[in-house]
Amino acid sequence: MGALLVEIRDLVQVLQVKKKLPWKVRGGPPRGIYLLAAILRTALGIGVAVVLGTFGQISGGFGAVIAGMAAPKIIESLRTQTIASAPQPQAHEMIRNQATPAPSRRTASEITEGEAAQDAT
């Protein structure tokens, strides 16, 4: 319900400012894409509200409406927390990897000449 309210508010805001439907505004998305995005965002809001209600994080209708409205921000927050908690390479490992000299590159003829010189001694 909350996500649907956000979609309606966004639609009304575009209508008030541009005096046209969003898909008729120059540079706006096609109608099908706009409606698909609105349906997906609404479904996302409903899903977040259901999950939070199932696990006892919210109680009552008002909490579900607020969770639905905040669903995109909740998902973004979870995503950034997951990225931030991923293991990062330690500074000393990065320095050690940069300080490691690159292996020398010798051609086949240089290797053969060097081995021949060692065999001669």
Results as ranks from 00 to 15, higher is better:
Val12Tyr: 02
Gln13Arg: 12
Gln13Trp: 05
Val14Pro: 01
Gln16Ile: 02
Gln16His: 04
Gln16Gly: 04
Val17Cys: 01
Val17Asn: 04
Lys18Ala: 15
Lys20Asp: 02
Leu21Thr: 04
Leu21Trp: 15
Leu21Ala: 12
Leu21Cys: 05
Leu21Gly: 03
Leu21Glu: 14
Pro22Thr: 10
Pro22Lys: 07
Pro22His: 10
Trp23Phe: 13
Trp23Leu: 06
Trp23Glu: 00
Trp23Cys: 07
Lys24Val: 03
Lys24Leu: 11
Val25Met: 06
Arg26Pro: 02
Arg26Trp: 09
Gly27Phe: 07
Gly27Pro: 01
Gly27Glu: 07
Gly28Ile: 09
Gly28Tyr: 14
Gly28Arg: 03
Pro30Gln: 04
Arg31Val: 12
Arg31Glu: 14
Ile33Glu: 14
Ile33Phe: 14
Tyr34Pro: 00
Leu35Ser: 02
Leu35Ala: 08
Leu35Gln: 04
Leu35Pro: 00
Ala37Arg: 10
Ala37Cys: 09
Ala37Trp: 09
Leu40Ser: 08
Leu40His: 02
Leu40Tyr: 08
Arg41Trp: 14
Arg41Met: 15
Thr42Asp: 00
Thr42Tyr: 03
Thr42Gly: 03
Thr42Lys: 00
Ala43His: 03
Ala43Cys: 10
Ala43Lys: 01
Ala43Met: 10
Leu44Glu: 08
Leu44Asn: 03
Leu44His: 01
Leu44Ala: 05
Gly45Ile: 02
Gly45Thr: 01
Gly45Glu: 10
Gly45Met: 04
Gly47Phe: 11
Gly47Asn: 08
Val48Ile: 14
Ala49Ile: 03
Ala49Val: 03
Val50Ala: 15
Val50Ser: 12
Val50Asn: 14
Val51Arg: 09
Val51Glu: 13
Leu52Lys: 01
Gly53Leu: 11
Gly53Phe: 13
Gly53Ala: 15
